[in-house]
Computed example of a mutant assay.
Amino acid sequence: MVETDSPRRITRTAGDGDDIRLNAVFDALADERRRRVLRCLRDDDPPVPVESIARSLRDEVGDDERTLEASLHHRDLPRLDDSGVISYDRETNCVVDCDRIDAVQPYLDTALRMER
Rank of each mutant, 00 (worst) to 15 (best):
D27R: 13
R113D: 15
C98I: 07
D59R: 15
V61N: 06
A28C: 00
D102V: 11
H73W: 05
R113C: 13
D97Q: 08
L22M: 15
P7G: 09
R8D: 13
I53A: 04
V37G: 02
F26H: 15
R9A: 07
E91H: 11
G15I: 03
R113Q: 12
R55F: 04
R66S: 15
E65P: 03
L80S: 08
A24V: 04
P49H: 13
V2S: 02
D97N: 14
D99P: 00
D109E: 15
R113E: 13
R8N: 11
P106R: 00
R42G: 03
N23D: 14
V96W: 11
L29E: 12
R79I: 09
V104F: 09
F26D: 14
H74K: 08
L68N: 01
R39T: 07
C94Y: 05
D97Y: 09
E60G: 14
G15T: 04
D64F: 02
A70Y: 10
E69L: 02
V95R: 03
S87N: 01
V48Y: 02
D82S: 14
H73D: 03
L41Q: 01
S83Y: 06
R36P: 01
F26A: 12
D99Y: 05
D81K: 05
L29K: 15
I86Q: 06
T110P: 01
A30R: 14
R90I: 06
L38R: 04
L80N: 08
G15C: 04
D76N: 13
L57V: 08
I20R: 01
V95E: 05
S56E: 12
V96T: 15
R36T: 00
R21I: 10
R35G: 11
I101D: 03
R55S: 07
L57I: 09
R58P: 00
D43Q: 10
A70V: 06
R100K: 15
D81H: 13
V104Y: 11
P46D: 12
V104P: 05
G17C: 04
D76A: 08
A103G: 07
P7W: 05
I10L: 07
R55K: 10
R42H: 03
S87V: 00
V61A: 07
D99V: 03
R8K: 13
L112C: 10
D45K: 01
L80C: 07
D64S: 03
R36W: 05
G84R: 09
R66G: 10
C94F: 04
V2G: 00
